[in-house]
Design a protein around this nucleic acid. Structure first.
Lengths: 329, 329
DNA sequence: AAAGATAATGTAAACGATTACATGAAGGGG
DNA sequence: CCCCTTCATGTAATCGTTTACATTATCTTT
């Protein structure tokens, strides 16, 4: 049904090789012949079959993206960054949601291998040796975003420093009773380093750590809300809460407001991520901005370069975070 | 470098046809032979080349998704729904962001054709005859979400009714000075029908339309904020504002709060979409919920059925919206 | 004008699977 | 015990490109 290069060749009165050559313009074809071929392509509306091409040239111009869940804040922006750059380099992206399920993740890696993607952007769990080795053995380049592993390329921010900056800013406001609603301590990508940053800032300011002020959340709104309720009911309540995600921070704001505290006068809150919601809430949220879109862009640039065989000087890139001062602190 | 079916065949001491047969299990292969083949596959870690397979069987188990921008609220949830069902049916999704740019859109359609996707989920502009015809001619099934066109399959909600429900609810609260911050009137998918629903509700309640109360926004936060500022500075200010998107509604809330109005006592606001932010803001937002995830699921189910040649009874599905009553009204 | 160099195009073998058809082995009926 | 099915597997064509190599046309040079 669909036309092939043969149909075009016949109509143009040339061989298939010639048609292929005018399309790929790597070999010179006489002006006149070129015109005949182009006319035939135009007339038939012929579109080359990329699958056949891929089989021969051994690349697909497709890259896989493995993330936990596109509907969590955080991912859409970085995916958009990836896609924009991918598009510039003529790659398409295959999106895979794992829900952090190792089994699902393994299945996706398998189909991406079978579909012969040229590369994979991974931002899910921490990666395993098994997977890294397998991908290396089939020649699929891996790029990590917001996670890191051995000699693999990665794009990250300095989470320790970022959390430290946030907490130091609070301290600079003259507050010392600062609580943390952190991420999971088992999460080495964000939970742990942000906790460390919090501790570091307090220590350096000579403030002793109060166990009651440290809670573990799951980055979701509800856990921020619940956490704040708990913290605010302490007999010695904190005057500021640093949450390891904006969603949690927004939960904190709500809990604070509900309890009748004026923000920031009576309760300061600082978040992490700078999701777009954070500028919209009232009071708007002081937070740490991760350059999400840029992380996607830089990651995809790096990946594209490696795929094109360019030698890359820096294959572990740490992007700058930024403290965004708004109304909540 | 990577192994092919030949290597497996050699190792197992059988022909490539036999290997193919045990993998596809459409033809019976003796238990004993099967075992030899399976062992060889296991031993070599062989993964079939889906590209080669696609070339022969003429399907790719890939579907394209064309959207304006994955980083706008609205899309991540529906994309997630699509992906979940796609995954069940063993499809992968190729994500394409058009920014509503016709040129980019055309390019994406072209590469999706070249990459031989089995189907396309489209939720961008309104589709054109030219595109619909071209896709039909190359045999690519199209499914529309939240837009509609001629005989194409589609998943939508009843926007007129939804807006009407929202406004009627406001009226039921005893308020009659109701303003609208709508979408673009040139947007036939959402802007126009929601405007119509607003007008319908007012008319049926015998409330005359006040031109000053009708503003056009672009669904973004800022346009809601600006719009509300304008409305609230009217000498005869509205007592309620219906915004055609939650982002705009959140802008309205902020503008209202800044101007010192108590919400909902002095100013009611109702949004549209039920993005997850809407339950987090304070006061939380009364809004119309579109079943985004479900729209993705139902859409992909419909598409998968058509691709499997099942006769589908209903190819235009209108899903139920729901009024979510929260604090803002 | 012939010979050699070069330019333009054609021919056919890949790429790695699937599958129609061919073949050989095993089983069953008379 | 032979012939005919039926079952299991093998052989080779095919999908639509790209590209190494072969061939022919064109251009220099003397």
């Amino acid at each position: 049904m669909s036309l092939s290069i043969k149909d075009v060749a016949k109509l143009a009165g040339v061989s298939v090789a010639t048609v292929s050559r005018v399309m790929n313009k790597k070999v010179f074809v006489k002006e006149e012949t070129t015109k005949k071929v182009l006319d035939a392509i135009e007339k038939t509306g012929y579109k080359p079959n990329a699958i056949a091409r891929s089989l021969k040239v051994k690349n697909t111009k497709s890259i896989g993206i493995i993330i936990p869940d596109i509907s969590s804040h955080f991912f859409p922006d970085v995916v958009r960054g990836i896609e924009d750059i991918a598009n510039e380099y003529s790659y398409n992206i295959i999106l895979c949601n794992t829900d952090l399920n190792r089994e699902k993740e393994k299945e996706y890696f398998d189909v991406l291998v079978e579909k012969q993607v040229d590369g994979i952007v991974y931002m899910s769990n921490t990666i395993t040796d098994e997977i890294a080795d397998k991908m290396a053995s089939v020649g699929i380049e891996i790029l990590l975003i917001s996670t890191d592993y051995k000699e693999l390329s990665s794009i990250t921010i300095d989470n320790v420093k970022a959390a430290e900056d946030a907490v130091k800013y609070i301290i600079s406001k003259g507050v010392r009773d600062i609580a943390l609603i952190g991420g999971e301590m088992t999460d080495p990508n964000a939970g742990l380093p942000r906790f460390n940053g919090y501790v570091k800032a307090l220590s350096e300011a000579g403030i002793s750590i109060n166990k009651d002020y440290i809670l573990e959340g799951n980055y979701k709104y509800e856990s921020g809300y619940e956490g704040a309720k708990k913290l605010l009911s302490l007999k010695q309540r904190p005057r500021a809460i640093f949450a390891a995600s904006d969603e949690m921070a927004i939960g904190v704001i709500r809990a604070g407001l509900e309890s009748g505290y004026r923000i920031p006068d009576e309760l300061m809150v600082v978040g992490f991520d700078d999701i777009d919601m954070s500028r919209m809430v009232y009071p708007s949220l002081t937070t740490i901005s991760q350059p999400l879109y840029e992380m996607g862009c830089e990651g995809m640039k790096l990946l594209a370069k490696k795929l094109h065989g360019e030698k890359v000087e820096q294959f572990k890139i740490v992007l700058e975070h930024k403290l965004i001062i708004r109304e909540s602190c």
